[in-house]
Amino acid sequence: MELGAALAMLRTLLVAVLLSLPAAVSAGPQTVVLVVGADSHVRDLDPIAIRKLFLGLPVFVQGALLHPLRNRSDPQLDPIFFQQIVAMSQEAYDRQILIGVNRQGWLRPQEVTDRKRLLELLYSDPDAVSFVWLRDVAHDARIRVIRVLWDE
């Protein structure tokens, strides 16, 4: 196994352990995680699938089309979104969205500017996928972290 993959697995394991501890544990460092609702059938998504999803391309898991939710509740998440999730500049991303809509009617990921609203959507939609600060969901039993996307 490559070192990078091993470190990523260790980081995910550490997050899982932290989340399983009682509520008295404080939120970890600045960490952005990929999340789904606790009832979701999504267990993991590789970086390519995550990138496709947030570019508006169709991504299926167990026969269901996933619904990406772009978290715009915190401006600090925007550069992390462009660098870590879609791996392109904002200008290139905007152009890809235009091209996708024009060619095949792709849909832009739904943008949610309110954190509570985002969590409500994740609770209610088993196909919804989004990204949040770990500290915002560390003790939320209705949210499941499936991957660490970035940490400081």
Binding site: H67, L98, V101, N102, G105, W106, L107, R108, Q110, D125
Partner: peptide, 10 residues
């Protein structure tokens, strides 16, 4: 229940 839409104008 979840109908999504997009509109683009050139």
């Amino acid at each position: 229940e979840r109908l999504q839409g997009e509109f683009l104008l050139f």
